[in-house]
């Protein structure tokens, strides 16, 4: 999937705080700009991003039009067990992009 990137440390010690980093390709049209024809360009942003760790939600955010195009997101989470971290981005059209990464916890 070329439109999003996710980076999670491959390995961590149980109890460590790890950093999850992500990027997604999205124009994040604010809805406040006007096109060349003078008409407003409809809002088209990622309105929600959420992360699960082995299926349990560990992070979620509602985004507003002030978030930049192709937004970068990073957050911290405690490494508890081996498994999968998955991010999901949902935009105004209801289109969902997801990206997941594996982590081994010792």
């Amino acid at each position: 999937m070329a439109s999003a990137r996710l980076k999670v440390p491959k390995k961590a010690k149980k109890g460590d705080i790890i950093t999850v980093k992500s990027l997604i390709k999205h124009k994040m049209e604010t809805g406040q700009r006007k096109g060349k024809d003078g008409k407003p360009i409809p809002r088209m942003i990622i309105k929600k991003v959420s992360a699960t760790y082995n299926g349990v939600e560990v992070f979620s955010a509602d985004w507003a039009p002030a978030v930049s195009a192709n937004p970068f997101l990073s957050f911290k989470v405690r490494a508890t067990e081996s498994g999968t971290i998955e991010l999901k981005w949902t935009d105004d059209n209801g289109k969902v992009v997801s990206q997941s990464a594996k982590i081994t916890v010792q």
């Binding site: 070329a2 990137r5 980093k21 390709k25 990073s74």
Partner: peptide, 20 residues
């Protein structure tokens, strides 16, 4: 700072497109 970290540099989304 955005450029320094490949994970925060949005340009890498295009590198990925090229790689695909």
């Amino acid at each position: 700072g955005l450029q320094d970290d490949d994970m925060s540099n949005p340009g890498y989304l295009w590198v990925d497109t090229g790689e695909d």
